[in-house]
Nucleic acid binder design. Structure first.
Lengths: 131, 131
DNA sequence: TTGGGTGCAAATGATTTGCAACATC
DNA sequence: GATGTTGCAAATCATTTGCACCCAA
């Protein structure tokens, strides 16, 4: 659960996120909620999104502009990366054990510890390439 | 060259960046310049930094806060990644051909084209781990 | 001379926060 | 009824931009 209390706004945000498969910004999410007739303050959207990230329910992707975008974590919750389409925003999960091993090895080579990485790729998906 | 004209402020910024080995924000760079007695407007720092990035003289790293940080490109200019120390900011260049191949393969597997990636790792360097 | 460059202050945009009103448990 | 939540507006923060003035070429 998000916090302690189940409110109309948290339910609305959680439900909306269930149906979204692309990384979206807080502003976009707020806007989508309004279009669905859900009146929710922007501040509440930010607060809820942050809480969900802290509880591992959402992943964050930083856009080149510095804007934060969010996507629900896959239920399986395994460590993985994303292929994001620069045109339509479609996101594909990618699990690559070799990649993890490589990162480990590189870090060790340079005596770095507790290395984190959040690797995401930006490309053009098949559908958008055709268009 | 940065633009067309060589000004006191551009020289100061370029010289400062020569001596820096960690990713630094525009604000930090501005502050460092002031401490060196260089009076330069913040706006000019931003404008110059952006111009240098566009001309491939600097690399950009987005901090988790969404803040942009800059570091001069290695002269060799080859594609590579960074290991950044979360404590001291020290940055180590890492070239990993295997990593590039892996990325290519993953993208192809999912029919994504023109895939870009900017992979940076955050860890604790040997010196900071000891302290 | 002259157009690019600079500084400053105002404008932007995203995100956070203070606080009183409010709803859930 | 107590405490966590919300909404709104104000406050932050990083970054950009308008514009009059300035300087390198």
């Amino acid at each position: 659960m998000i916090g302690q209390r189940v409110t109309r706004q948290r339910v609305a945000i959680a439900e909306l996120l269930e149906s979204v498969d692309e990384f979206r910004s807080a502003q976009q999410i707020h806007q989508m909620l309004q279009q669905r007739g859900q009146e929710i303050g922007l501040a509440t959207v930010y607060r809820t999104l942050n809480a969900m990230v802290e509880q591992g329910q959402l992943e964050v992707l930083l856009q080149p502009t510095g804007e934060h975008t969010y996507l629900r974590c896959e239920p399986r919750g395994e460590h993985h990366h994303h292929l994001v389409c620069r045109t339509c925003g479609r996101t594909v999960d990618v699990a690559a054990p070799e990649l993890e091993q490589l990162v480990e090895a590189l870090a060790a080579q340079h005596d770095f510890r507790d290395v984190e990485h959040s690797i995401d790729f930006l490309g053009t998906c098949q559908d958008c390439a055709r268009a």
